[in-house]
């Protein structure tokens, strides 16, 4: 029988002019950051060549915070009864994944910079410890989303974790002011930045570049989530149609009475039967 496969044209395009422009801008600004950071910007009087990590680590850490802030925004939007919509949940999961990626990058680049300047890969000061906690929380958030099948419960529980994550972000940001730490205080985000010339310009460019990269990743991750939801729903409908047709054919082949007409799906079948999957069941009973 002909396959009830979802036509490719029914799915959104992979990218738009806007996202392509966003991606291109990210590439160009990342290239500029690399060029200025490695060849144009001079060394620092104390850190020497190690200062070039300044053009990666702070921007990456800020994007980590931005990702978790967007995750919290999406979670708040979903928790707010009047605003509740799958769009907020998509924003939350996109922010959490992008934040987790940048959080790992923060830990790795910070560790490399720490080994070069402090002399250690890791130490348990407040800033580093809280960043590690934030990364563990983000992994927990993503694990929870994979573990809970009911979309409502999944969004509800993960929204709570998102609130915990953004609280950790705030404490992490102020850790160097509230406690004594080996980690230095902020350089750029204060009334009089303590950096000038090419170092300031390059650092600013790194924020622009990683900001554009974050925006590009967010857009595509959001779109992927929407596509997955659509794929689940449309794939299920196609599978239901296919199975009913198949049962009819099989019944005729074996001389059994054929099942007729659609029936609501209220309990699962065993194994990998797509129709019996909890997520699929919820869609079918809508």
């Amino acid at each position: 029988m002909p396959s009830p496969r979802i036509p490719a044209t029914a799915l959104p395009a992979r990218s738009t002019l806007l996202t392509r422009a966003l991606g291109l801008s990210a590439i160009v600004t990342l290239g500029l950051t690399t060029w200025w950071g490695l060849w144009v910007s001079p060394p620092d009087v104390v850190q020497g060549q190690f200062v070039r990590m300044l053009y990666v680590h702070p921007a990456v850490a800020t994007m980590c915070y931005a990702g978790f802030a967007l995750c919290a925004l999406g979670s708040l939007g979903w928790l707010w009864p009047r605003l509740r919509s799958p769009r907020w949940d998509r924003l939350a999961v996109a922010g959490a994944e992008v934040g987790a990626v940048f959080c790992l990058a923060t830990l790795v680049t910070g560790s490399i910079w720490g080994r070069a300047t402090w002399g250690v890969w890791w130490t348990w000061d407040a800033r580093l410890t809280l960043t590690a906690i934030l990364f563990a929380l983000s992994l927990g958030y993503l694990a929870l989303r994979r573990a809970i099948d009911n979309p409502h419960s999944r969004s509800m529980v993960s929204s709570m974790v998102a609130m915990l994550m953004v609280l950790t972000v705030v404490v992490d940001h102020y850790a160097t002011q509230w406690w004594v730490t080996l980690h230095q205080n902020t350089t750029l985000f204060k009334p009089s930045p303590t950096i000038h010339g090419w170092q300031l310009v390059t650092m600013g460019m790194s924020f622009v570049a990683f900001g554009l990269l974050t925006a590009w990743l967010m857009v595509h991750r959001y779109r992927l989530e929407a596509l997955e939801e659509r794929y689940d729903n449309e794939g299920l409908n196609a599978a239901l149609t296919a199975r009913r047709s198949e049962v009819t054919a099989a019944g005729a082949g074996w001389g059994l009475p054929a099942a007729t007409g659609p029936r609501p799906v209220t309990s699962s079948t065993s194994g990998d039967d797509a129709v019996g999957r909890p997520g699929a069941r919820e869609v079918a009973t809508r």
Binding site: P42, P43, V45, G48, W118, Q184, N185, T187, T194
Partner: peptide, 24 residues
């Protein structure tokens, strides 16, 4: 048993002749 160098959040560009010496 362990020395950790602490650096602040101030950054100053090294003069050209200083470039290779800094950090050693």
């Amino acid at each position: 048993y362990q020395i950790m160098v602490q650096h602040g959040s101030n950054y100053v560009e090294a003069p050209a002749h200083h470039a290779t010496a800094a950090g050693r």
